[in-house]
């Protein structure tokens, strides 16, 4: 875990408020730093800061450091923290909110795999209305590390052999309507 020095000077006192106004973020102010979330989190060991510490940083206003950390990118959305938090804070929802802010503000570090994965996924869904796993994986690997293509060739073959990789992509009929929905929704983003 990387507990590097935080940027004192960059404190943003409104950060807590910003998060508290996002869906699920309302209760973050109630956090009493018990660490149940971190102790339960399957990926806390690879996070820069544990979820608990991240929340302390949010409350203190270390916006830069929070958004620069890998913590929320490692959230697998398993919700174990959310169901156990004694203050009933919707931790997983906060992690989602942080991902969105980071992508929007391009806090994403170069080669941030999760960010690349998510945007590849979204591109396909916005185009076809359905996800298409083979294309997703290829796009993602090309974006991040093309050698992955080779490393995963065996896996791809295995799946193909067992009839679990389709060749043709699936598209919905109402693609135009879907795009209209998306266009309108984006104009009303929170």
């Amino acid at each position: 875990m990387n507990t590097h020095k935080l940027k004192q000077k960059a404190i943003d006192k409104d950060f807590l408020d910003e998060i508290a106004h996002l869906p699920g973020g309302e209760r973050i102010i109630d956090c009493f730093q018990c660490g149940t979330c971190s102790g339960s989190c399957p990926t806390a060991h690879v996070m820069d800061h544990t979820p608990r510490r991240l929340f302390a940083m949010v409350k203190a206003g270390f916006r830069e450091d929070v958004l620069n950390s890998n913590t929320y990118w490692y959230c697998t959305s398993c919700y174990i923290c959310t169901v156990r938090c004694p203050r009933q804070i919707k931790i997983t929802d906060v992690m989602y909110a942080l991902k969105r802010i980071a992508l929007k503000e391009r806090y994403v570090r170069r080669k941030n795999a999760a960010g690349a994965f998510y945007s590849s996924f979204v591109d396909i869904v916005e185009r076809d209305g359905r996800s298409f796993e083979p294309e997703l994986m290829v796009r993602f690997m090309l974006k991040t590390d093309p050698t992955l293509l080779l490393k995963n060739a065996v896996l791809g073959l295995k799946l193909m052999k067992h009839g679990r990789l389709p060749i043709r992509r699936n598209r919905i009929k109402a693609r135009n309507e879907l795009r209209a929905i998306i266009r309108k929704a984006k104009s009303e983003s929170l």
Binding site: P23, S77, Y96, K99, R100, L103, A114, F117, Y118, S119, F121, V122, V125, G129, R130, S131, I172, A174, L178, I181, I182, K184, A185, K186, E188, S189, L190
Partner: peptide, 19 residues
């Protein structure tokens, strides 16, 4: 259509929910 899974909600709020 695709529910959007973890990925869409990580990128867009209202759009992912509307989809």
């Amino acid at each position: 259509n695709c529910c959007g899974a973890t990925a869409y909600l990580s990128v867009e709020d209202i759009a992912s929910m509307a989809v």
